[in-house]
Nucleic acid binder design. Structure first.
Lengths: 139, 139
DNA sequence: GCCAAATGATCAGCCGGCTTACTAAATCGG
DNA sequence: CCGATTTAGTAAGCCGGCTGATCATTTGGC
């Protein structure tokens, strides 16, 4: 396996970590995708298109994720009076509360690696150079 | 984004790289999942359960991936006379040929990172410590 | 030898990526 | 001012993860 392409190692590592998250979040009626949205809404409500761009995901994907968050009562959608095409998404108190309860998880969960800063730097390199024309990088 | 949890960076980087693979493989009527299976079959035919374990994936996932490879004519399934529960999967000549044409892709496609060996080492760390009871690690 | 347990494969159904195609609303050009 | 273009959101449908359930076969204990 140590000879496998880096892209494949990346995919496998990602799925394994996400699976651990899934187990930890199940008791909160939350998924990994939902948690990302709750995180992005911490500061202020936002439109779905903006959320999609910030999460590096297509609009359709965000739409369904928000459907599920809404079903659980963690966010609400309401019309933007200034632009009736847009639907602003906002965390409910329950959504804010459940997100707070996820804060400790990463530390417990993420496995030990020899050089964590190097890993994070490499991942940011990849994201920076690959998300070129797909999402306007503003972060 | 540089403050985001490492698990999330891993997921985004993985999707971006996989998307680039997807584009490169589309003209070969092949997907990333299919390519992995063709790789695993390079040496010898194998059973589906073994392929699933080697790819760090559940049996059901492999089953559908092989369905599609079979539909494209890249592999064939045949019964194992020694154990009639098993179905041995084998690459066809077309499958071997199309896999050869993917060999050059990784080099063209994978983005530049500052410290590639550190990235690979970290990913192998994660895979090693996370795939504990999920797959018997033999590789 | 026979019945229980383990194993290999599949079906059904969920989630979360994606594309293509559509509607409604806002914006822009002439 | 009005038609064309752009933008926000959604529906439909595919792929690839996953779980839980089912069926056939093999293995193992008694």
């Amino acid at each position: 396996m140590s000879q496998w392409p880096t892209g494949r190692l990346l995919g496998i590592a990602s799925r394994l970590v996400e699976h651990a998250w899934f187990d930890a979040l199940a008791e909160l009626d939350l998924t990994h995708a939902g948690m990302i949205v709750l995180h992005l809404l911490a500061e202020a409500p936002d439109s779905q298109a903006s959320l999609a761009s910030r999460a590096r995901v297509e609009a359709q994907t965000i739409s369904r994720t928000i459907d599920r968050l809404e079903r659980e009562g963690y966010v609400v959608r309401h019309e933007d009076p200034a632009d009736r095409r847009r639907r602003l998404v906002e965390r409910t108190p329950r959504g804010a509360e459940v997100f707070e309860r996820t804060r400790h998880i990463e530390a417990d969960l993420f496995p030990e690696v020899a050089d964590l800063p190097a890993l994070r730097a490499a991942l940011l390199d990849i994201i920076g150079s690959s998300s070129g024309d797909r999402w306007t990088t503003e972060d």
